[in-house]
Design a protein around this nucleic acid. Structure first.
Lengths: 198, 198
DNA sequence: CAGCTGACAGATTTCAATATCTGTCATTCC
DNA sequence: GGAATGACAGATATTGAAATCTGTCAGCTG
């Protein structure tokens, strides 16, 4: 009994995979489960994704890209470079914190997945630091920021704020005072970017 | 056949525990193993440490304190506050990186231990940020740094450099270019501390 | 004939029995 | 008498046999 009689597409498989991951967790989510959820044989899933790893990679990439796209809107938005930088960092923190807080099981699942999929995460980080570089370069152009190399500065800012977006710190995001800590770090970084060259 | 006939002290037990941890890893290191290594019955170990958790805690504390003490020497050392701050941060990075690089097994062992012992790690971090606070306060006093609250700034600096001392980033410490990343982050933070208040 | 199926081999995971460990304490030993 | 021992009960870990999963492919189906 097929749940829907639409044709089987990669998109539908990804949808079902996400649901199975949410339900079963990363360790117990099998290709057979995904096929069962779709009412097809597991052989059909292998027609669209060569291996289980490729399927996991695709679903993880989709998940990460959702955050990327949301933040991309801030890069060319309104306000000064400093305002956009602050909004972007706050947006990243907020997005991660909500993902972790709203559905901890699913977040833990993706944390496991990203741990085993180095390449996808690398691209995601390149994407995000690229966005940051554009904001900082704009600030350097307008004179708000004084940095020798916007790309280097962007990476430093991204890494320095790791505590507020790297999944390995997720358990701290619910702690009392985390907001103040975030503000203190961002203030310090913004002052570093804005100060005259040494 | 007791390997040594000295009296059984807490110190000797900690020594043996560290050796057993190095040999067997955190999951397989048992109290029975420790007793066997010392040539005594496991009941004797329980005379000095009430539980296995207490033993693990004591040995972990000892390990963390070794790093603390090494860095404490820099706090009141020679040079300007900026020089000491840079030396302290570099020293912390260096210490952690060597621990992780020289004996990855033992480092992984302590990473597991610190994960289960929240309190000990909390105290260790309080200790380290305390040292940082003293350096930054000295800089604020001499006019090198301009910060409203040295303790807040110290915590921000500690967290912003987390990538270079937090065990969850240990695998990145062997990567190409990590030194440059460290320098970029520290430069940015020092500029932030030194710049005139906003 | 394009897409799907289900049986299959080898790899991985589960589960229950078996063995080991933790923490206690009555007893032994200097 | 203070320190150490080793037997013990309940909790935890190991092990290996049975079940399940991954990835392939010859054949079915519409």
């Amino acid at each position: 009994m097929p749940p829907t009689s639409e044709t089987l597409t990669a998109e539908r498989i990804l949808e079902a995979t996400e649901e199975v991951l949410r339900r079963h967790g990363p360790a117990k989510a099998t290709v057979v489960d995904v096929a069962r959820a779709l009412g097809v044989s597991h052989g059909s899933v292998y027609r669209h994704f060569r291996t289980k790893a490729a399927l996991r990679e695709a679903v993880t990439k989709r998940w990460l890209d959702r955050t990327s796209r949301r933040l991309a809107g801030i890069v060319d938005g309104d306000g000064t470079a400093e305002q956009r930088l602050r909004a972007w960092l706050a947006g990243l923190f907020e997005a991660k914190r909500h993902k972790a807080g709203d559905d901890p099981e699913l977040f833990a699942t993706y944390t496991v997945l990203t741990d085993e999929l180095g390449g996808v995460v690398y691209e995601h980080i390149e994407d995000l630091t690229g966005q940051l570089t554009r904001i900082i370069a704009a600030g350097a152009g307008s004179g708000d920021f004084r940095v020798p190399d916007p790309a280097v500065a962007a990476r430093a800012v991204f890494q320095a704020t790791g505590r507020f977006h790297d999944p390995c710190h997720a358990r701290d995001w619910a702690r009392q005072g985390i907001e103040e800590e975030f503000t203190a770090v961002v203030d310090l970084l913004v002052r570093g970017l804005s100060s005259p060259s040494p």
